[in-house]
């Protein structure tokens, strides 16, 4: 990365570097938009049968997770995970329609796409977006491998791995170094989201397709059955929601302008110690 000195400080120099390549920036924003609607249309599809199972098929008497309404007046939304039930009225199981009436549905209308219960439209959007996601993701992955972005910037070195406890300590103290290179926790977070979770979403998604199961029966072996694949698809989506939450918080508290600029123009300002230069 090429840099040039902006100004001198007693403690170090502020240097502008080119942090993100053009393809990373474009695919990042396409992915951001596509992923939000993939998530929301996915929750719409989940709502058609708001229960999860493990294995090849659905054991209706023992779902791993289920959202529903308790037979109470007024209706109460209940979510049960591995046998433990929680009252989730207003959010999961029972939420409110446009006129404020309670309706039985898994996720509420403000997080599904479309908002109304409409499996057919949700599916059409989901599969359309899935094509965009796969095309965009393939461009990102190819460019990451060919440009050596992954091996150079994301793959943790042995020094990084030894540095994990120290890096955790820094983060807990809210000390975020603006450096040329990602710290080890950033590397691990981006690898887990971009190179593990997102490809896993594609593979578990394909495993839910009866036609793909005929073409590639090994998909069922890998994930332990179609219903397991559906559950892993859902759990991985929830992991990605968590990733997005942490990602947005970190962007906000570690220099929001600098971070946003670096993902739009590529330019990122770092502070460097004199001895580094």
């Amino acid at each position: 990365m090429s840099g040039f000195a902006l100004q001198s400080h007693a403690m170090g120099k502020r240097v502008a570097v080119r942090r993100h390549g053009l393809i990373v920036r474009i695919t990042h924003w396409v992915n951001a938009l596509v992923w939000v609607f993939l998530l929301m249309s996915g929750l719409q599809i989940f709502n058609a049968h708001p229960a999860l199972y493990f294995g090849q098929q659905s054991n209706f008497t023992h779902p791993f997770l289920v959202m529903g309404a308790a037979n109470d007046n007024p209706a109460r939304g209940m979510t049960s995970i591995a046998g433990h039930s929680f009252d989730t009225t207003g959010w999961l199981g029972v939420s409110y329609d446009e006129s404020g009436e309670p309706v039985e549905r898994g996720f509420p209308r403000f997080v599904t796409w479309p908002g109304e219960q409409d499996l057919a439209t949700g599916r059409r959007w989901h599969f359309f977006l899935a094509w965009l996601f796969v095309i965009n993701g393939t461009i990102y992955l190819l460019s990451g491998v060919l440009s050596r972005h992954f091996t150079r910037d994301l793959l943790p070195s042995w020094a990084d791995i030894r540095h994990i406890p120290r890096s955790i300590f820094d983060h807990v103290q809210l000390k975020f170094a603006h450096e040329r290179r990602y710290n080890v926790l950033q590397k691990l977070a981006y690898i887990s989201a971009a190179l593990v979770a997102l490809p896993l979403m594609v593979l578990t998604g394909l495993t839910m397709s009866p036609a793909m199961d005929a073409a590639f029966p090994w998909l069922l072996e890998v994930f332990g059955g179609r219903q397991s694949a559906r559950s892993i698809h859902f759990i991985t989506a929830m992991f990605l929601v968590l990733f997005l939450f942490v990602h947005l918080v970190m962007v906000l508290i570690s220099g929001v302008f600098n971070n946003l600029r670096s993902m739009i123009t590529g330019r990122y300002v770092v502070e460097e110690q004199a001895h580094d230069l």
Binding site: F46, A48, H49, A51, Y53, L119, R123, P210
Partner: peptide, 12 residues
């Protein structure tokens, strides 16, 4: 064989 419903469940 496995029967997959559009809603998301499966039965063999």
């Amino acid at each position: 064989t496995r029967h997959d419903c559009v809603e998301g469940w499966s039965c063999i």
